[in-house]
Every structure is written in structure tokens, then in C-alpha cells.
Design a protein around this nucleic acid. Sequence first.
DNA 1: GCACTTTGTTCGGTAGGCGAACAAAGTGTG
DNA 2: CACACTTTGTTCGCCTACCGAACAAAGTGC
Lengths: 414, 414
Amino acid sequence: MELQTPPQPPAPAQEARGRPLSHLALETIWYSQRISRADLSRRLEVSRSTASELVSDLLATKLVAEVGDGPSRGGRRPILLEFQDDEHVILGVDMGATHVAVALTNLRGRVLSWREEAHPVRADPDGTRALIARLGDACLADVPGASTALLGIGVAVPAPVDHRDPKRLSPTVLPAWEGRSGFDSLEARYGVPLLVDNDANLGAVAERWWGAGRGIEHFTYIKLATGIGAGLMVGGEVYRGATNAAGEIGHVSIDPKGEPCVCGNRGCLVTFVGGEALVRRARAALVEDPEGPRSLLAGCAITPGLIEEAAMDRDPLAMRVVRDAAHHLGVAIAGLLNLLNPGAVILGGSMARLGDDLLIPLRETVVRRTLVSSVAASEIRVSELGPRGIAIGASTLVLAAALERPSLFPAMRG
Amino acid sequence: MELQTPPQPPAPAQEARGRPLSHLALETIWYSQRISRADLSRRLEVSRSTASELVSDLLATKLVAEVGDGPSRGGRRPILLEFQDDEHVILGVDMGATHVAVALTNLRGRVLSWREEAHPVRADPDGTRALIARLGDACLADVPGASTALLGIGVAVPAPVDHRDPKRLSPTVLPAWEGRSGFDSLEARYGVPLLVDNDANLGAVAERWWGAGRGIEHFTYIKLATGIGAGLMVGGEVYRGATNAAGEIGHVSIDPKGEPCVCGNRGCLVTFVGGEALVRRARAALVEDPEGPRSLLAGCAITPGLIEEAAMDRDPLAMRVVRDAAHHLGVAIAGLLNLLNPGAVILGGSMARLGDDLLIPLRETVVRRTLVSSVAASEIRVSELGPRGIAIGASTLVLAAALERPSLFPAMRG
DNA sequence: GCACTTTGTTCGGTAGGCGAACAAAGTGTG
DNA sequence: CACACTTTGTTCGCCTACCGAACAAAGTGC
């Protein structure tokens, strides 16, 4: 306890000294959609004179415009300022393991155009980059004037992303990409900034801004697909952990004596509810169950997608497989609730389309396995954005950056 | 997707506009212990003239003093400024379930005086408050001039604390306290601000500032005592969850088919490694084990403390009980690592004194049950502060507040 | 001894934000 | 409708915080 190493971050100068007032003003107007100068001055806690000054600068960028008068509150009617959502557009790219999807959105997350195509992403980096460019061009061509109004590109990748060096991809998860994303060519092609993040993180971001996570500071987004990953939202920001490996809920064990998993652990959640696990369990059920041969799945080359569809068609065997998975997922979520006490748990990925067939058995298990105070406030829901959520999240990544630091985006300077 | 509820916090004005430069300067000098005006200007990224100005204000508060020249770096020798750690003192109170401890510290967490006494805290609020005052007085009397230099009081309570209304205690955990802490009388008695937080959270704070968590942004502190609780450190701040219930790792299930727990779940971690579980397992071992009667524990009224002491005396039966507990704890920590990817896991509470007897079997289980990248960066350690950690954390709660917002503390204005 | 550095202070300049004052445009009331 | 009162938005002078340039003081190194 003598000469102590100092505890706190070295020089919090940049963060702690605060962002320029002009950025806050832009963000506040975006947030409010319509607001008068007087209200803006109250929100920002600055004088009306400065609010007026800030606004006159913003009007010059075309991102904000006057749109008539608002209702009087006992005095002169306010001039309403409106954020111009369509002044710029953003490309959001969802790079899945086996497909690429691109969304063109405006500055309020509205999808103006959408393209999707199957592709062996993991094995073919060059082809993937070319495909992204092709789909991106197609989306831009759909909307008049979009090309010149492009603000930036966001990309969701199915691998951990180091946010200090985001263009570097994990060589272990995507070996064919040689650890480099090669997205610089895309950045140069469109001449706008390109940002990258992990898909589960961006699913969480999308729900936070536009979906089931609106207004919730802390929540967990769980992507249920072939693999299982989580995006942890803490204080409105994505939590990444010490080495960007946070959110590997698929490899949390729910049965220490369960089957061995590829990760070395036993009884991991993926061994119960991952895509492969579902297929294995469906196959076993087809054999064991006397009713098996009457199932919609009998005689098929079973895939996770087929099981989900059969369950949605009320096939009893498929529904039983889903219900079992939901109960196992419930055990893991109960632990998550007790440990993290999130304000919500939001389920995404292809399995989320099962809706109540997934939620009802899941909640049943969770209620039996959580502390009272925790479960009361914690709601379990499915994604409100559906399969487009990840691409929208990628677009939102750019939007958030532009609102926070407009100066980084050449297009924002009008 | 039409009219969207806005996502981001309404008016980030206070936070986002940044703290006054004078606060940052004070914090930076505290952090650096000794620093010249020129270095300060570089750290804060302000001009040397402003740094000089700021310093002359701080010198007036007596919190900073000039202490001679530093080594030349090729030019004029710098005048070293030193933070005056002993200009004020802080009382840190550890209110355990069955005891009260008080530490008097300076502004760098050094314990100047220490008092501890057993007391039925849960059942006797009035007596507890009187005891705190008595121990506090005794500590202050030990150090000349301490009474007039008192900056504030921090209190660690063994219950969740709502940080928006910190003086309100959880009626479910401490029913005799009627939901109110009654700490206002203490605040009035000493005439200084009094802050309250949960004990596991403050254990984490103490380790972050002075112990095994120094320099680590994200880590988890686990208090292993009668109950098991965790303090989650995220980005250098305590993470509390949506309803201040985060950190209940004791009720995370590690075996969904295990014994039922009081919380309603099955196979909770506490049913394997809680104080009562240790006692139960030791009793069972004494009967089943042929060597049982030769154990140090034979014939005793077994308590968790006795088991720990017997294990430290190399009693084989006690060590086996501890080893089993460590393996079960390892399962839970493995899950924690995969989910949260903390930079460290720090073990506190009375069991932490077992050191390697706990750590070695624990690490063995963890290594077998975690993903590579995660375990590589995640270190599992025991507390460096020992039994005084919680009280030191309570003192640090006040210190951190004083450095962040000195204006809230009358004493800081010199 | 000399060229060059670094530190700390002084001092004038500047820009960003504030308050006061005012005009414009409302509401409510007798 | 006249009147008092409110709210909005702009203008303008002022003040504070911060900066940069200049300078003296006190070093180093060849």
C-alpha cells in the first residue's frame, strides 16, 4: 500500500471536457424531430441567444430546416425546426455466414431499399466484397439522388470486432479473410467512411434505437441462429468486454455434466439450442417417437430453418423440439437475469420468428428460476425488427457516429 | 416503424458538456501525485498559461502544494506540485450482517485508524447507528486534527442500494430497518456528506482503486462469505442493472437438476459454495468419510469460519470441502467469463484468505470450461486488500465523489 | 561559452456564451 | 376591444475562459 499505481484512466481530457455544443444541438434536434429554438435552449440548458446562434449554423448545413409555426403556449408562436431525415442516406450491410443483405436507410433508420442474396461469405472474401458493392449500387440506384447523398457505410460481420482496429477481422472465425477485411476498397469506391462491428452487437444497437429496446438503458440481445451470440447493451452502449469476446452466451454451460462441446466445455447452451442441436434432436425424435413418421419433417433433409417452419405450421414434433430448446434457453436466461439484471432480454435471429411458441415455454422456465425483483422488471421479448434488424443496426452504427461527431463525416458539413 | 419513440437519453447536457476544467486539474494532480504545471498542461491538453492559472487556484485550497524542483529534461527544472493526501480524512463504514467495522483513511485510501466490533446489525438499527458513531469517534480521536479535517462518510450496507435514493434500504433484506437507513442523524452529527452503497459493489471499487483491479476497466469482484454476491465493474464504473439487482451470482444455477434453493431455482451456486452449504457438506463428510473422526472439525459446532481455518491448517477433510466448492465455483466463473469477458475476476470475502487452496482447483476447472481468447486475458485472483477491503471501498466512494465533483464537499473549498 | 531546451509568467486577443433589452406575436380578461 | 401578461426570437454589449506570443529564468550538452 505504499507507492500506489494510479487507478483511474490517464487523461480523460477528450471525453470529460465534453463535446462541442453544436454537436449536442444537432443531436437534440434529431432526437426531438421537431423543436423550437426556445425549447432547444431549455433542453441544452443554454441561453436563448446561443440557441439561436447554434441554429443559424445548423440551418446552413441543410440538416435542419424551419417548417412553420407551432402552437402557442400563451405567447408568440414558436418557429418549428425539423431535422431533415432524408438529407443523407446510409448503407447498412449484413454479412451473414451464408448470405449478404444490404439496406439503404435514411437518417431515421427507415429502409428505403433492400437487397439480399445467398453467398458463401466465409470462404470467398473477394466475391463477398464484390457482391456487397453490387447490392449497394442496386440499392442506391433505387432512390433518386441517393448516390450523392451517401453519408457512410456500416457493416455487420459474423465475428468479434476489435473496436480499436475495426477493419481487422478475427482470423480464427474467418480464416479465409486472412485477418483483414479489405473493406478499404469499398470505402474508396464510395468515398465515404465505413464502420464495422459484430452482428450481435449491431442487432442490439438496432433494437435500442428502433425496436424492442427503445428507452431501455441495459438489455441483452440474443441472436438465435446456427450459433448463439449475445449483444450486451450497458448504459445505452455496447459492452465488449476486455478482449471483445463478451456475449458468448452460447458457450455458457447449463449442465456441467452435459455433452462435450467443441469449445472444450460441457453442456453448453449451443449443445441444446444451436442449429445443429435442433437438427440432431429432431432426427432423434423422428426415430424414437411413434408419431414421428407423420411429422412434416419425416423424409426431409432436416435444417434448422425447416424445423422452424414446421413448428410455425403447428407440426407437433417440431414444436416439441422448439419447446425443449426454449426450456433450456430459459435456464441460461434465468442465470443472465440474476447476474446482470437487464431491463429486457430481446430475442433475435431466425428463431425469433417463432414468437410465442418460443416465448411462452421460455418465460415459464425463467419465472421458476429467477429472484423476484429481477424477473419483475425484466421482460423477455422478441425482436421488433425481424430479419432486417442486423442490417438496420449496421446503418445505425453510422448514424450514431454521425450524430455524435458530425465533423468526422465530410457529407455532414453541407 | 412510423412515428418512432426517440432512443437516446433526453438531455445529456450536464454529462456531455463536460466537467469544469478545475475539477479535471485536481483529479489529474491527485492521479499523478506529483506533476509539474507543464506536464499538467499536456495531460489536460490546455495551454501552459491556463494550467498555471488553474494551479494557482488549487494552491489556495491547500489540496495541492509546491514541493521543490523536479529533474530537468534538458531545460529549466519544473516546480513539482503534490497532492496533499492528508489534508482531509474520510470515514469508511463496513456494515456487515453481524459486525461493524470503521476505517479512517486519508485521501489516498491509507488506513489511519481502524475499529471493529461484532453486532447484530440486521435486528438492531438504532444500536448499529450508535455503534457506528462510537467507532467513528474513536477512529477520529486516534488521529490529531482528524475531526476538523473530515471530508465525508461512506457506508457499505449488505443489501441492494438504489443509487437514486441511496438512503433507502431494501426492506426485504433488512426488514428491521423499515426501509430507511436513518443515516441522516449521522450526517448531521458529523456535519459532512454521507454516501451509501452495496458492500459487494464497494469491494469492487476498492480493488479497482487500490487492489487487484488497478488499471482494469472491466472486472468482476465476487464476495465469498455466508452469501455470495458480485460487484460488476464495467468501464471503471459499478454496473447496477435495471433495478439495482445485478451481481446476484449466488443464485445463478450451475445444475438445473440440483437441489432446490430458497430463491425458487435449483442448483444455485450458493447451494454448493455458500456458508451453509459448506457446513452441510462438512457434516456429511465427517459421517461418510472413514477418516472423518480424525479431522480437526470432528466434534465442533461447525461454522464456515471454522472450515476455512481448518483448511488453512491443512486439515484434509476441510481442504476437500474447499476443493469441491472451488470446482463448483469454477463452473459459474467459466460461464461468467464466456458471457462477460472481464479483464479479471477478483475473489473477496472471508473465503479469499484461503488463497491458492481456493485458486488452484478453481483455475483448473475454469481452464477446461472456457473459450481460449477469453481465459487468456482473464485472470482470477484473490483480493489484495483482505478483510478491510469493504470499509476501504466505502471510504473510496467518498473520495471518488470528491475528486469528480469537489464542489459538492464543503470541506474541499478550503 | 554558446546554442538550444524546458519551465513558468505576463499580457493582449478572441471566441463562445450570457443577460438585458426589445420587437413581434400570441392568450386571456374585463 | 383595450389591456396586461406571456412566450418567442433577435440584437448587442459584456465577461470569462482560454489561447498564443513573448519573455525571463534556469537548465543541458558540446
